[in-house]
């Protein structure tokens, strides 16, 4: 009990110095509280993987950093720190629960369609024919397809790289998709 109080007092003094701009004291403080947080988190969440605990420790350190002005040196340090830790772990648990609620565990992935023509394992068609059809597209349409579909850039990023406007990119992509569908169908048919 006495050791814990002494530890809290020492950390409180470091935080007081950190609030006044002492960076070395702040570094010492964060280095001292990181193992305390790891210990608390491992005790509270024994099922968490090591990297999850570390993510949470970092999240709490960042939170401590953002609200360090709220520490009052007249009050004990550890309850202040642990209140932030509790709040952030509760947030994490809520986020985790939300994600779990949206996930559905399945043993066998469902087929995209029950038709005979699907799920044959050759869904991607002839890559060579696609490359040639893309090469045959007009310049603007080819650039749009390469940036948006092959490199999977966002419209904003593609606009920046190509110098085309977002709406021009949308139109070019639409026309290119239609042209490619026609070209590939003609070739197969």
């Amino acid at each position: 009990m006495g050791d814990r109080e002494d530890e809290g007092d020492a950390l409180g003094r470091l935080m007081q110095a950190a609030q006044e701009g002492d960076r070395a004291a702040y570094r010492d403080l964060l280095r001292d509280i990181a193992p305390i947080l790891r210990r608390v988190l491992r005790r509270r969440f024994p099922f968490l993987a090591r990297h999850d605990v570390e993510d949470l420790v970092q999240d709490i350190l960042l939170s401590v950093h953002s609200v360090r002005a709220t520490y009052d040196p007249a009050r004990p340090f550890l309850p202040w720190l642990l209140a932030i830790a509790r709040n952030r772990t509760a947030d994490m648990a809520r986020r985790h629960a939300r994600l779990r609620a949206r996930e559905v565990a399945v043993d066998i992935y469902p087929e995209t369609s029950a038709e005979d023509g699907t799920n044959t394992g050759e869904d991607y068609g002839d890559a060579e024919a696609l490359q040639q059809a893309v090469k045959a597209l007009p310049q603007g349409q080819r650039v749009a397809i390469e940036l948006l579909k092959f490199r999977e850039l966002s419209l904003k990023e593609a606009a920046k790289e190509s110098g085309m406007s977002v709406s021009a990119l949308k139109v070019a992509t639409h026309r290119a998709t239609r042209a490619l569908r026609v070209a590939l169908r003609t070739r197969d048919g």
Binding site: G21, R23, Y26, R27, L30, A34, L61, A69, Y71
Partner: peptide
Amino acid sequence: LIDRLAEEAAPVHRV
């Protein structure tokens, strides 16, 4: 992360 936070820690006005 600790080094980065310590580097950018400016003095703060206590609440």
